[in-house]
Simulated assay, not measured.
Amino acid sequence: MTLSAQLTHFGIHAVDLDRMVDFYTRVMGFVVSDSGVGRSGARVFFMTQNPECHHQFVLFDGRPADVTYNPVNQISFRLDSLDTLKGYRQALIAEGITEHRVTDHGNAWALYFKDPEGNPVELYTDTPFYTPQPCGEPLDLDQTNDQILATTEAMCRGRPRFMTREAWMQSIQDKLDAR
């Protein structure tokens, strides 16, 4: 028997739950699909952007304000297009979140920022290319989509083991089938 698991959602604890729910609904575009109080007594908000998925993201009360490190390494959201990535950048700027790291990973274009509680967030969209990771080159989202695509393709073709995203996906499927 082959085991397969698909990541569908994740949850984090918040210091200021109401502020976090506001940010992720108003700025990030999630809707609250359910809310209540869990068995532990913590308030919980289930959020989604997909009507086929009850929740993709869950926020809980209970993160201590005095924790000396951020227990969240990264929250990543895959977007449908470069235009959507650019749109989120503008929404973040309008929200006053102007500290961004914009990166061309070769296989993805990404925008990194911190949410209201300092959690690292990545917004990304896939490119049509594969290049070995880690890879992180500067990305200028003020360029046209065609300029960005051409720059990324040239960068990827100059690195070892270049292939299209489709070829890479097939190589992963082959590995999965061989299990």
Rank of each mutant, 00 (worst) to 15 (best):
L59K: 07
S40F: 06
Y24W: 15
R165D: 00
R159T: 07
N107H: 13
P138H: 10
Y24N: 06
T8E: 14
L92D: 06
A5H: 06
D146N: 09
D34I: 02
E153C: 05
M28C: 09
L7Q: 11
H105I: 10
V32E: 14
S76T: 13
Q133M: 09
D126L: 14
R89E: 12
S33Q: 12
A178I: 06
Y88E: 01
N119Q: 10
A110Y: 03
G62R: 14
N145S: 15
E99G: 07
D34R: 15
H13Q: 14
G136F: 03
D18G: 07
A110R: 11
M20D: 08
M47W: 12
R26D: 13
S76K: 04
I172D: 02
E117W: 02
S76R: 04
N50L: 12
G11V: 11
S81Q: 08
Q74E: 14
P132G: 03
Y130G: 03
R39M: 14
Q173V: 01
V15Y: 02
G96Q: 09
C53I: 13
A91S: 14
W109C: 04
D174E: 13
E166K: 10
L176P: 02
T84C: 11
T84F: 00
L123D: 09
Q56D: 07
A108P: 04
C135W: 05
R161V: 07
A150Q: 11
L92P: 01
E117K: 00
A65F: 00
I75N: 04
T84E: 15
P134S: 07
D126G: 12
V21A: 01
F60Q: 09
T8L: 14
T103D: 12
F113D: 02
R43I: 09
P132S: 08
T127N: 08
N107M: 09
D142C: 01
F46V: 07
Q170L: 12
Q133P: 05
L123H: 06
L149R: 13
R39P: 13
R101M: 09
V72N: 04
T8G: 15
R157Q: 14
C156F: 06
L82C: 15
D115C: 04
L85Q: 08
L79K: 05
R157V: 05
N145D: 14
R101Q: 10
P132F: 03
D140L: 06
S33H: 05
D177R: 15
P160H: 10
S76C: 13
